[in-house]
Amino acid sequence: MPFTLATWNINSVRLREPIVCRLLEEEGPDILCLQECKSPVEKIPVERFRALGYTQMVARGQKGYNGVAILSKLPLREVGAYDYAALGHARHIAAELENGVVIHNFYVPAGGDVPDREVNEKFGQKLDYLTEMRDAFHAVAPERSILVGDLNIAPREDDVWNHKQLLKIVSHTPVEVEHLGAAQDAGRWVDITRQDIPEGQLYSWWSYRAKDWDAADKGRRLDHVWATPDISNAGHGSRILRTARGWEQPSDHAPVFASFDL
């Protein structure tokens, strides 16, 4: 069952319903995983999505913050939603396709502005969240699974516009990269995007603060598509739809795509 999926931090699914629909119409992924929906589940604008063929949805939401959703043309069923680090946040949802593949959609905490858990509670929460992800993958080794989402970390030197300048900036600090790597190793997750595009600068996020984000190009690759080793060779066609960052009233993230022949 070949399918294409996309992951996108939409930064309010209700506010940005028009560009979600544009993506669904123009790109037509079989599955779209959204993060930072900022909406209770019952207020997600599902009718327009259903009219475009996305009749399936599993989601976790909360008013004004966080929130994750999986929209799909393919039948799926919810198989879990975990509150890592007991934050009480809607940051994870998992769904199983008819072929037994499980898709995990994550929104890892951003971590605030100061990379020191002693003075910044949010940074500590981020590290704790990643640690509990690691422990969960150690406890039950994932199989036939895909993990996507805004993981809020750019792990490689070429995942940021300037490695040296960002070493002390939240999202690229060594301690964050170490924690993300430990979670990835625990599940033996394969980075599908970098499997397909192994070399070169690659970004999925550009700050709203840049007057001309495209020309400045000070980006970071915060959004990821991983797969377990038993299905990683089926992944291909990875790309980042950079143009979506320039759409009307955009998210500061661009959608990341991958296809799987399973």
Score class of each variant (00 low, 15 high):
residue 3 F to K: 06
residue 7 T to W: 01
residue 12 S to R: 04
residue 14 R to N: 11
residue 17 E to M: 10
residue 33 C to D: 06
residue 37 C to G: 04
residue 37 C to Q: 03
residue 39 S to C: 14
residue 41 V to D: 14
residue 52 L to W: 10
residue 55 T to S: 14
residue 58 V to I: 15
residue 58 V to M: 10
residue 65 Y to T: 08
residue 66 N to Y: 07
residue 66 N to Q: 11
residue 68 V to G: 00
residue 71 L to I: 09
residue 76 L to W: 13
residue 81 A to M: 08
residue 82 Y to E: 15
residue 83 D to P: 07
residue 86 A to R: 14
residue 97 L to Y: 02
residue 98 E to K: 13
residue 105 N to Q: 11
residue 105 N to W: 12
residue 106 F to W: 13
residue 108 V to T: 10
residue 109 P to C: 10
residue 112 G to W: 01
residue 113 D to Y: 11
residue 113 D to S: 13
residue 116 D to T: 10
residue 118 E to M: 04
residue 126 K to N: 06
residue 134 R to V: 03
residue 136 A to H: 07
residue 139 A to N: 11
residue 144 R to I: 03
residue 152 N to C: 12
residue 162 N to Y: 03
residue 167 L to D: 09
residue 173 T to C: 09
residue 173 T to E: 02
residue 174 P to C: 06
residue 177 V to A: 04
residue 179 H to G: 02
residue 181 G to E: 09
residue 183 A to T: 02
residue 187 G to R: 00
residue 189 W to G: 00
residue 190 V to S: 04
residue 194 R to H: 06
residue 199 E to Q: 10
residue 201 Q to W: 09
residue 204 S to L: 02
residue 210 A to Y: 01
residue 219 G to H: 00
residue 219 G to N: 00
residue 220 R to T: 00
residue 222 L to P: 01
residue 224 H to R: 09
residue 224 H to W: 15
residue 227 A to S: 13
residue 228 T to V: 08
residue 229 P to Q: 14
residue 230 D to C: 03
residue 231 I to A: 01
residue 237 G to I: 09
residue 239 R to E: 10
residue 250 P to T: 10
residue 250 P to F: 00
residue 252 D to H: 08
residue 256 V to C: 04
residue 259 S to P: 08
residue 260 F to W: 04
residue 260 F to Y: 10
